[in-house]
Protein backbone atom coordinates (compact mmCIF):
# COMPACT_ATOMS: atom_id res chain seq x y z
CA UNK A 1 0.00 0.00 0.00
CA UNK A 2 2.77 2.37 0.87
CA UNK A 3 4.24 1.89 -2.56
CA UNK A 4 1.22 3.43 -4.19
CA UNK A 5 1.80 6.51 -2.12
CA UNK A 6 5.32 6.89 -3.42
CA UNK A 7 6.35 10.14 -4.86
CA UNK A 8 6.21 9.66 -8.61
CA UNK A 9 2.83 8.09 -8.21
CA UNK A 10 1.51 11.28 -6.68
CA UNK A 11 2.56 13.25 -9.66
CA UNK A 12 0.78 10.77 -11.94
CA UNK A 13 -2.37 10.91 -9.90
CA UNK A 14 -2.46 14.63 -9.79
CA UNK A 15 -1.78 14.87 -13.48
CA UNK A 16 -4.68 12.46 -14.05
CA UNK A 17 -6.90 14.58 -11.92
CA UNK A 18 -6.15 17.69 -13.86
CA UNK A 19 -7.02 16.04 -17.13
CA UNK A 20 -9.95 13.83 -16.26
CA UNK A 21 -11.97 15.60 -13.64
CA UNK A 22 -14.22 18.32 -14.86
CA UNK A 23 -13.87 20.65 -11.91
CA UNK A 24 -10.11 20.51 -11.93
CA UNK A 25 -9.67 21.06 -15.62
CA UNK A 26 -9.05 24.77 -15.62
CA UNK A 27 -5.41 25.73 -16.01
CA UNK A 28 -5.06 27.40 -12.63
CA UNK A 29 -5.92 24.20 -10.80
CA UNK A 30 -3.71 22.12 -12.99
CA UNK A 31 -0.73 24.24 -12.21
CA UNK A 32 -1.48 24.31 -8.51
CA UNK A 33 -1.89 20.56 -8.42
CA UNK A 34 1.39 20.08 -10.20
CA UNK A 35 3.11 22.30 -7.66
CA UNK A 36 1.42 20.37 -4.83
CA UNK A 37 2.84 17.13 -6.16
CA UNK A 38 6.30 18.68 -6.40
CA UNK A 39 5.98 20.01 -2.86
CA UNK A 40 5.13 16.58 -1.52
CA UNK A 41 8.07 15.10 -3.37
CA UNK A 42 10.38 17.65 -1.84
CA UNK A 43 9.21 17.01 1.70
CA UNK A 44 9.54 13.31 1.10
CA UNK A 45 13.11 13.87 0.02
CA UNK A 46 13.90 15.58 3.30
CA UNK A 47 11.98 13.33 5.66
CA UNK A 48 12.93 9.94 4.38
CA UNK A 49 10.84 6.81 4.50
CA UNK A 50 7.58 8.11 5.81
CA UNK A 51 5.39 9.11 2.88
CA UNK A 52 2.26 8.17 4.83
CA UNK A 53 2.95 10.72 7.54
CA UNK A 54 3.77 13.38 4.97
CA UNK A 55 0.59 12.70 3.12
CA UNK A 56 -1.38 13.11 6.31
CA UNK A 57 0.48 16.34 7.01
CA UNK A 58 -0.50 17.74 3.63
CA UNK A 59 -3.97 16.34 4.11
CA UNK A 60 -4.32 18.20 7.37
CA UNK A 61 -3.14 21.39 5.71
CA UNK A 62 -5.55 21.07 2.75
CA UNK A 63 -8.45 20.32 5.05
CA UNK A 64 -7.75 23.49 6.99
CA UNK A 65 -7.00 21.60 10.18
CA UNK A 66 -4.02 21.50 12.48
CA UNK A 67 -1.62 18.69 13.03
CA UNK A 68 -0.30 17.10 16.21
CA UNK A 69 2.80 14.96 15.94
CA UNK A 70 3.33 12.77 18.94
CA UNK A 71 6.47 10.77 19.05
CA UNK A 72 9.81 10.12 20.70
CA UNK A 73 12.55 12.73 20.41
CA UNK A 74 14.77 12.45 17.43
CA UNK A 75 12.51 10.74 14.93
CA UNK A 76 12.13 13.83 12.80
CA UNK A 77 9.15 15.75 14.11
CA UNK A 78 10.83 19.09 13.86
CA UNK A 79 12.50 18.18 10.61
CA UNK A 80 9.12 17.47 9.11
CA UNK A 81 7.76 20.80 10.33
CA UNK A 82 10.83 22.61 9.02
CA UNK A 83 10.59 20.87 5.69
CA UNK A 84 6.97 21.92 5.43
CA UNK A 85 7.92 25.46 6.29
CA UNK A 86 10.71 25.43 3.75
CA UNK A 87 8.53 24.02 1.02
CA UNK A 88 5.40 26.04 1.59
CA UNK A 89 6.10 29.65 0.94
CA UNK A 90 4.42 30.59 4.18
CA UNK A 91 5.35 33.01 6.85
CA UNK A 92 6.79 30.64 9.47
CA UNK A 93 7.41 30.95 13.20
CA UNK A 94 8.53 28.35 15.70
CA UNK A 95 7.48 28.48 19.34
CA UNK A 96 9.43 26.30 21.74
CA UNK A 97 7.04 25.54 24.56
CA UNK A 98 8.57 25.45 28.02
CA UNK A 99 7.12 25.30 31.50
CA UNK A 100 7.56 29.05 31.98
CA UNK A 101 6.05 30.09 28.70
CA UNK A 102 3.19 32.56 29.23
CA UNK A 103 0.15 33.06 27.02
CA UNK A 104 1.42 36.48 26.14
CA UNK A 105 4.57 34.90 24.80
CA UNK A 106 2.40 33.11 22.30
CA UNK A 107 -0.35 35.47 21.27
CA UNK A 108 1.31 38.82 21.99
CA UNK A 109 0.77 41.59 24.48
CA UNK A 110 -0.59 45.14 24.68
CA UNK A 111 2.11 47.53 25.66
CA UNK A 112 1.62 51.18 26.59
CA UNK A 113 3.50 53.25 24.19
CA UNK A 114 4.93 56.41 25.66
CA UNK A 115 5.29 58.00 22.28
CA UNK A 116 1.77 57.50 21.15
CA UNK A 117 0.27 57.66 24.61
CA UNK A 118 -1.83 54.57 24.00
CA UNK A 119 -1.69 50.80 24.22
CA UNK A 120 -0.41 49.13 21.17
CA UNK A 121 -0.62 45.42 20.52
CA UNK A 122 2.60 43.62 20.02
CA UNK A 123 1.79 40.60 17.79
CA UNK A 124 3.02 37.36 19.26
CA UNK A 125 4.67 34.57 17.25
CA UNK A 126 1.30 33.02 16.62
CA UNK A 127 0.60 35.64 13.99
CA UNK A 128 2.18 33.55 11.30
CA UNK A 129 0.78 31.39 8.55
CA UNK A 130 2.66 28.30 9.65
CA UNK A 131 3.38 27.84 13.33
CA UNK A 132 5.45 25.06 14.79
CA UNK A 133 4.47 24.60 18.43
CA UNK A 134 7.27 22.43 19.67
CA UNK A 135 6.77 20.21 22.72
CA UNK A 136 3.41 21.66 23.43
CA UNK A 137 2.82 19.52 26.50
CA UNK A 138 5.65 21.21 28.42
CA UNK A 139 3.79 24.47 28.60
CA UNK A 140 1.32 25.11 31.43
CA UNK A 141 -2.37 24.66 30.58
CA UNK A 142 -2.99 28.40 30.39
CA UNK A 143 -0.51 28.77 27.60
CA UNK A 144 -1.76 25.68 25.85
CA UNK A 145 -5.26 27.06 26.01
CA UNK A 146 -4.20 30.32 24.48
CA UNK A 147 -2.74 28.50 21.52
CA UNK A 148 -5.65 26.14 21.13
CA UNK A 149 -8.19 28.92 21.36
CA UNK A 150 -6.41 30.77 18.63
CA UNK A 151 -6.40 27.59 16.53
CA UNK A 152 -10.10 27.07 17.03
CA UNK A 153 -11.23 30.61 16.39
CA UNK A 154 -8.65 31.81 13.91
CA UNK A 155 -8.37 34.93 15.99
CA UNK A 156 -6.79 36.24 19.17
CA UNK A 157 -8.52 38.32 21.78
CA UNK A 158 -6.38 40.55 23.95
CA UNK A 159 -7.91 43.19 26.22
CA UNK A 160 -11.24 42.88 24.50
CA UNK A 161 -9.71 43.50 21.12
CA UNK A 162 -9.96 40.86 18.43
CA UNK A 163 -7.04 40.34 16.18
CA UNK A 164 -7.50 38.10 13.16
CA UNK A 165 -4.81 35.60 12.42
CA UNK A 166 -3.24 35.59 8.97
CA UNK A 167 -4.61 33.19 6.38
CA UNK A 168 -3.83 30.42 5.72
CA UNK A 169 -3.16 29.49 9.30
CA UNK A 170 -1.66 26.10 9.97
CA UNK A 171 -0.28 24.79 13.24
CA UNK A 172 1.98 21.83 13.55
CA UNK A 173 2.37 20.92 17.21
CA UNK A 174 4.63 18.25 18.58
CA UNK A 175 4.57 16.49 21.87
CA UNK A 176 6.73 13.93 23.55
CA UNK A 177 4.82 11.02 25.06
CA UNK A 178 7.67 9.78 27.27
CA UNK A 179 8.85 12.88 29.06
CA UNK A 180 5.86 13.10 31.34
CA UNK A 181 7.52 14.64 34.42
CA UNK A 182 6.79 18.33 34.56
CA UNK A 183 4.49 18.23 31.59
CA UNK A 184 0.84 18.88 31.19
CA UNK A 185 -0.89 16.39 29.01
CA UNK A 186 -3.34 18.07 26.68
CA UNK A 187 -6.89 17.59 27.90
CA UNK A 188 -9.17 15.54 25.70
CA UNK A 189 -11.37 18.47 24.82
CA UNK A 190 -8.37 20.34 23.56
CA UNK A 191 -7.04 17.45 21.55
CA UNK A 192 -10.14 17.79 19.46
CA UNK A 193 -8.69 21.04 18.07
CA UNK A 194 -6.17 19.05 16.11
CA UNK A 195 -7.57 17.54 12.96
CA UNK A 196 -5.04 14.75 12.82
CA UNK A 197 -2.57 13.28 15.21
CA UNK A 198 0.27 11.31 13.72
CA UNK A 199 3.41 9.67 14.94
CA UNK A 200 6.43 9.16 12.77
CA UNK A 201 8.05 6.07 14.19
CA UNK A 202 11.48 4.83 13.26
CA UNK A 203 12.28 5.06 9.58
CA UNK A 204 12.46 1.83 7.61
CA UNK A 205 15.82 0.20 7.05
CA UNK A 206 16.57 1.65 3.61
CA UNK A 207 15.49 5.13 4.61
CA UNK A 208 17.64 5.05 7.71
CA UNK A 209 20.70 4.03 5.68
CA UNK A 210 20.03 6.85 3.27
CA UNK A 211 19.69 9.18 6.22
CA UNK A 212 23.05 8.16 7.59
CA UNK A 213 24.73 8.49 4.25
CA UNK A 214 23.25 11.82 3.24
CA UNK A 215 24.64 15.24 4.23
CA UNK A 216 23.34 17.11 7.22
CA UNK A 217 19.59 17.63 7.32
CA UNK A 218 20.01 21.29 8.07
CA UNK A 219 21.91 21.75 4.82
CA UNK A 220 19.20 19.97 2.91
CA UNK A 221 16.57 22.09 4.61
CA UNK A 222 18.43 25.16 3.59
CA UNK A 223 18.22 24.12 -0.03
CA UNK A 224 14.45 23.73 0.02
CA UNK A 225 12.59 25.56 -2.70
CA UNK A 226 9.42 27.37 -1.85
CA UNK A 227 7.10 25.51 -4.15
CA UNK A 228 3.68 26.65 -2.90
CA UNK A 229 2.66 30.10 -1.75
CA UNK A 230 -0.17 31.15 0.49
CA UNK A 231 -2.42 31.79 -2.52
CA UNK A 232 -1.90 28.23 -3.67
CA UNK A 233 -2.74 26.84 -0.25
CA UNK A 234 -5.96 28.84 -0.14
CA UNK A 235 -6.87 27.68 -3.65
CA UNK A 236 -6.19 24.07 -2.76
CA UNK A 237 -8.28 24.35 0.39
CA UNK A 238 -11.11 25.72 -1.68
CA UNK A 239 -10.71 22.90 -4.18
CA UNK A 240 -10.86 20.36 -1.36
CA UNK A 241 -14.23 21.65 -0.19
CA UNK A 242 -15.61 20.95 -3.66
CA UNK A 243 -14.64 17.27 -3.65
CA UNK A 244 -17.71 15.14 -4.30
CA UNK A 245 -18.94 12.84 -1.56
CA UNK A 246 -21.50 10.27 -2.67
CA UNK A 247 -24.32 8.96 -0.51
CA UNK A 248 -22.50 5.68 -0.19
CA UNK A 249 -19.46 7.46 1.19
CA UNK A 250 -21.54 9.44 3.67
CA UNK A 251 -23.13 6.15 4.71
CA UNK A 252 -19.71 4.78 5.39
CA UNK A 253 -18.59 7.76 7.45
CA UNK A 254 -21.83 7.62 9.35
CA UNK A 255 -21.44 3.90 9.98
CA UNK A 256 -17.93 4.46 11.34
CA UNK A 257 -19.08 7.15 13.72
CA UNK A 258 -22.03 5.16 14.89
CA UNK A 259 -19.85 2.15 15.40
CA UNK A 260 -17.46 4.17 17.54
CA UNK A 261 -20.35 5.08 19.81
CA UNK A 262 -21.47 1.46 20.23
CA UNK A 263 -18.04 -0.10 20.57
CA UNK A 264 -17.58 -1.97 23.83
CA UNK A 265 -14.14 -0.58 24.60
CA UNK A 266 -14.98 3.07 23.99
CA UNK A 267 -16.38 5.33 26.67
CA UNK A 268 -17.07 8.29 24.44
CA UNK A 269 -17.32 7.84 20.70
CA UNK A 270 -16.81 10.32 17.92
CA UNK A 271 -18.73 13.58 18.06
CA UNK A 272 -20.62 15.11 15.15
CA UNK A 273 -17.72 17.54 14.87
CA UNK A 274 -15.41 14.57 14.47
CA UNK A 275 -17.69 13.37 11.67
CA UNK A 276 -17.37 16.67 9.86
CA UNK A 277 -13.64 16.57 10.40
CA UNK A 278 -13.51 13.07 8.96
CA UNK A 279 -15.40 14.24 5.91
CA UNK A 280 -13.08 17.22 5.41
CA UNK A 281 -9.96 15.14 5.88
CA UNK A 282 -11.25 12.50 3.43
CA UNK A 283 -11.89 15.19 0.86
CA UNK A 284 -8.40 16.56 1.27
CA UNK A 285 -6.99 13.07 0.95
CA UNK A 286 -8.94 12.57 -2.26
CA UNK A 287 -7.24 15.66 -3.68
CA UNK A 288 -3.87 14.19 -2.78
CA UNK A 289 -4.88 10.98 -4.56
CA UNK A 290 -5.76 13.01 -7.62
CA UNK A 291 -9.50 12.57 -7.45
CA UNK A 292 -12.37 15.00 -7.28
CA UNK A 293 -14.45 12.49 -5.37
CA UNK A 294 -13.78 10.85 -2.03
CA UNK A 295 -13.68 7.09 -1.62
CA UNK A 296 -13.63 4.72 1.31
CA UNK A 297 -9.89 4.39 0.78
CA UNK A 298 -9.55 8.07 1.67
CA UNK A 299 -11.66 7.65 4.76
CA UNK A 300 -9.65 4.67 5.88
CA UNK A 301 -6.36 6.42 5.20
CA UNK A 302 -7.17 9.32 7.51
CA UNK A 303 -9.41 7.60 10.03
CA UNK A 304 -6.83 6.34 12.53
CA UNK A 305 -4.97 9.66 12.62
CA UNK A 306 -8.26 11.46 13.00
CA UNK A 307 -10.02 9.24 15.52
CA UNK A 308 -7.33 7.91 17.84
CA UNK A 309 -6.93 11.12 19.86
CA UNK A 310 -10.67 11.75 19.92
CA UNK A 311 -11.77 8.40 21.31
CA UNK A 312 -12.00 8.11 25.07
CA UNK A 313 -11.41 4.53 26.01
CA UNK A 314 -12.77 2.77 29.02
CA UNK A 315 -9.48 1.55 30.46
CA UNK A 316 -6.70 3.50 32.19
CA UNK A 317 -5.25 6.51 30.38
CA UNK A 318 -1.61 5.42 30.73
CA UNK A 319 -1.50 3.65 27.37
CA UNK A 320 -4.08 5.89 25.90
CA UNK A 321 -2.45 6.65 22.62
CA UNK A 322 -1.38 3.11 21.77
CA UNK A 323 -4.70 1.55 22.54
CA UNK A 324 -6.78 4.16 20.80
CA UNK A 325 -4.89 3.51 17.59
CA UNK A 326 -5.63 -0.17 17.90
CA UNK A 327 -9.28 0.45 18.67
CA UNK A 328 -9.53 2.75 15.67
CA UNK A 329 -8.18 0.00 13.41
CA UNK A 330 -10.67 -2.38 14.99
CA UNK A 331 -13.46 -0.01 14.06
CA UNK A 332 -12.20 0.05 10.49
CA UNK A 333 -12.02 -3.73 10.40
CA UNK A 334 -15.50 -4.13 11.79
CA UNK A 335 -17.28 -1.60 9.61
CA UNK A 336 -18.49 -2.93 6.29
CA UNK A 337 -18.12 -0.59 3.39
CA UNK A 338 -21.42 0.34 1.82
Amino acid sequence: MTQSLSTDHNADNLADLSTTTATARDDGNQAVLARLAAAMDQVNAVVLGNPQAIKLTFCSMLAGGHLLIEDLPGVGKTTLANAMAGTLGLDYRRIQFTSDLLPADVVGISIYSQNHEQFSFQHGPIFSQLVLADEINRAPPRTQSALLEAMAENQVTVDGQHYRLPQPFFVIATQNPLDLAGTWLLPDSQLDRFLLKISLGYPPRDAERALLRAPDRQAILGNCDRLLDSGDVIALRKLATRVHCSEALLDYIHALIEHSRNHAGIAIGLSPRAGLALLAASRAHAILEGRMHAEPDDVKAVFTALAAHRLKLLDEPGQHSKDATRVASELLEATAIP
Binding site: M1, S4, E295, P296, D297, V299, K300, L332, E333, A334, T335, A336, I337
Partner: peptide, 12 residues
Protein backbone atom coordinates in the same frame (compact mmCIF):
# COMPACT_ATOMS: atom_id res chain seq x y z
CA UNK B 1 -10.40 -9.35 1.75
CA UNK B 2 -13.37 -8.45 3.89
CA UNK B 3 -16.49 -6.37 3.82
CA UNK B 4 -14.40 -3.64 5.35
CA UNK B 5 -11.91 -3.68 2.49
CA UNK B 6 -12.03 -0.47 0.50
CA UNK B 7 -11.76 -0.76 -3.30
CA UNK B 8 -8.17 0.49 -3.37
CA UNK B 9 -7.12 -1.87 -0.61
CA UNK B 10 -8.85 -4.71 -2.40
CA UNK B 11 -6.84 -4.11 -5.54
CA UNK B 12 -3.60 -3.94 -3.56
Amino acid sequence: CRHSSAPGELLA
